[in-house]
Structure formats: C-alpha cells, structure tokens
Simulated scan of single mutants.
Amino acid sequence: MYVCICAAVPDTEIRSCIARGARTVEDVGDACGAGTGCGSCHDHIDVFLAAANAPSEIAEMPVSA
C-alpha cells in the first residue's frame, strides 16, 4: 500500500526507514522522500512512527481504515 503518493513510497519503505532510525516525519522524508511533496501523508507517517515507539498499545490497531 502506498503511504506517500507524491513520492510513490509504500508502507514497507516507511517501516524500513523507521527501523533504521527515523523518528520524525522529517527523518522519514530525508530517508526516502515520503512526506516531502504535498504533505497529505504526514498523518499516516505519524501513525507508523507512533506504532514503532509504543508497540504495546498501537501495534494491534488496524493499519488501514
């Protein structure tokens, strides 16, 4: 599933960036370009970041609506 349409970045790449140390939307953008276009994906990237930083509560939530 694409998270960032502008840069054609799928969720797997977002997760990979976070696993490699990205901690903010800006970090993710620097790593793979996601979120550097229109910005409409920032909320989605924030969800991935929150899930990585608080896995006990958020990881079990559905990824898509």
Rank of each mutant, 00 (worst) to 15 (best):
G21R: 04
V9E: 12
A54N: 13
T24E: 05
A54R: 10
M61C: 11
G39H: 05
R15Y: 01
V25T: 05
G37H: 13
L49T: 10
N53L: 05
I18M: 07
N53D: 14
T12M: 04
A19H: 02
A65V: 03
A51G: 01
A8M: 12
R15I: 04
S64M: 09
V9I: 14
R15L: 11
C6G: 14
P55S: 15
A52T: 03
P10L: 01
C4K: 11
F48T: 00
V3Y: 09
C38I: 07
V47I: 11
I45V: 08
I18V: 08
G21N: 04
L49K: 10
S16F: 03
R15P: 00
E26G: 08
V9N: 14
R15T: 03
A50K: 13
E26T: 15
P62R: 09
V28A: 13
P55H: 15
H42L: 09
A22T: 01
E26Y: 08
A19T: 01
A50D: 07
V63C: 09
G37M: 12
A22V: 00
A7E: 15
N53C: 04
A34G: 06
A31N: 07
S56I: 15
V63M: 11
R15H: 06
E60V: 15
D46R: 10
E13Y: 02
A50T: 10
M61T: 12
V3A: 10
A50Y: 03
S16K: 05
P10C: 03
A8Y: 11
A52R: 02
E26F: 04
V63E: 10
A31P: 00
A8V: 07
V9G: 08
P55T: 15
H44Y: 13
R15D: 12
E60R: 15
A19N: 03
D30Y: 04
E60F: 11
T12P: 04
E13G: 00
S16P: 00
P55L: 14
R20Y: 09
R20S: 13
H44C: 06
T12V: 09
